[in-house]
């Protein structure tokens, strides 16, 4: 099995890549962070790619197919958490959400999933690969205050997941998403205040943050089970926001 993991140079993406590797997959990671790629374990193949660039994505995906024969699994993990409320009355230069930043957040978190899936599914269809697309969504997809752009992008990811599961099933290609809640990663601690994390813990039935490994296990599950298609799998300890 050849798996391509976007944004896999570090953080959650790297944990997913290593988990798939331990399950016996050949793993190729794409990331725009060259330093992170240089630090990858030698058993993981790394390629530099900005997943918001369609032509670059097609070229890199074609090179992966040339080198490894095919791509069986695409994990669309690349993305950036972005927090900005619709109205910020503490910002006198303009109290409303910046449109440029809205577009940036949607491009990174939604367009990238479309771009990479197009590039990889094209190869899957041409090579008759019965592959799997796994999109990393978020608990924020159901709407989370302070995250207009991020929530909208992740809701879009969920909608594309279900749409593709219906369209691509006829080709034997499945599409699922994994929607993590709050995971104890560096990016979570950077994005949230101590008080916010305390509030999350109080409202999570399991009373703790998730582990990146638990998200990776969920990704492996929706890959391995060949009858799971069109599912948004929550990995959130029972938290409802």
């Amino acid at each position: 099995m050849v798996a391509l993991v976007t944004g896999g140079g570090k953080g959650l993406g790297l944990v997913i890549a290593e988990h798939l590797l331990s399950n016996g997959a050949t793993v190729v990671v794409v990331d725009r962070d060259r330093d992170a790629l240089d630090a990858l374990p030698t058993s993981v193949f790394g390629k530099c790619l900005d997943v918001t660039q369609p032509e670059e994505a097609r070229t890199v995906v074609a090179s992966v197919v040339k080198e490894h024969g095919r791509i069986d699994v695409l994990v669309n993990n690349a993305g950036v958490i972005y927090n900005e409320p619709l109205v910020n009355i503490m910002k006198p230069e303009g109290i409303m959400h910046d449109y440029g930043r809205f577009r940036e957040a949607v491009t990174v978190n939604l367009d990238s999933v479309f771009i990479m899936t197009c590039a990889v599914v094209e190869q899957m269809v041409l090579l008759r690969t019965k592959g799997v697309i796994v999109n990393i969504s978020s608990i924020s997809a159901c709407g989370n205050e302070g995250q207009t752009a991020y929530a909208a992008a992740k809701a879009g990811v969920n909608a594309m997941t279900v749409t593709w599961s219906k369209e691509l099933g006829r080709c034997g290609i499945r599409c699922n998403a994994v929607a993590p809640g709050f995971i104890g990663t560096e990016s979570t601690h950077q994005a949230l205040s101590v008080d916010s994390i305390k509030h999350i813990l109080q409202n999570t039935p399991l009373g703790r943050l998730g582990k990146a490994q638990e998200v990776a296990q969920a990704v492996a599950t929706v890959i391995e089970n060949e009858f799971i298609n069109g599912v948004i799998l929550d990995v959130n300890g029972g938290l409802v926001i």
Binding site: V87, N88, I89, M90, V194, H199
Partner: peptide
């Protein structure tokens, strides 16, 4: 106050 962000400021106002 850790919870005193822009959304809380709106609540306050």
């Amino acid at each position: 106050v850790g919870s005193w962000d822009s959304l809380k400021q709106m609540d306050l106002v």
